[in-house]
Amino acid sequence: MRTRLHALVATVALGIGGTAVAQGSTMDEIAKYREMLADGNPAELLEMKGEALWKKPRGPRSASLEQCDMGLGPGKLEGAYAQLPRYFADTKKVMDAESRLVHCMMTLQGFSETEATKNWFSKPGQDSDIEALITYIGGQSNGAKINVPARHPEEARMAKVGEYIFYRRSGPQDFSCAICHGQEGKRIRLQDLGKLTSQAGAGAAMSTWPSYRVSQGAVWTMQRRLIDCMRQARWPEPSYLADSIIALEVFLQKTASGTVMQTPGIKR
């Protein structure tokens, strides 16, 4: 992975070498690099694998996930991801795509929570079923508009909590999400940070997840993205499916609402 990462970085560097170092042209070059990658987005492999996993009888109950209700009714996947997180009456909780998927793996297939979430992200040589399933579920919303109005009181509460976390400075560096993602045109090294507080900024970000990260050689889910951003903020890392992450997702999806999903994405 390391060596590959370097090879890729070298490719980007070559692409940029001849042009002016102005930020604008650098970003253009990165956009070109992305375009070149998009044609063969390896996330499509995971999407196919996720579809097979969705339909295959698995777990102690040897059941498939085809009856899983992701918010639009049992088995209705088209456009479901674009409307998550949402409040679910059966669990009395606001759930995102990942927590709902784990819920279905437990209730339909009989997995324990530990079993279901054991490999929630992949490592070299160790695949993650959740990554594959979420890539498939996300892809089923491709072309749909993000629609999280957060009208239910529980959803509205989570949106507020998410907004609070987004602006709250804490941790050893006194960081907030807003310090990195609250202004237009900012970047760290070559990465555009994105202003996640506007519809355009949040939309550009949220519509392209789950996303294949070339630097990691893997698809990252939104949970993984946000947990890693908390690490970047030097905050204690929350556990997988934590309410704090779901709250941030409600806040970001609400801000992004109206943007057309283009997933799986491909990122640095």
Partner: peptide, 16 residues
């Protein structure tokens, strides 16, 4: 023809 292959492509030089 466009083909995507699913493979780790380990070089033998990477350390775990």
């Amino acid at each position: 023809v466009k083909v995507l292959m699913s493979h780790e492509m380990e070089t033998g030089q990477r350390k775990d």
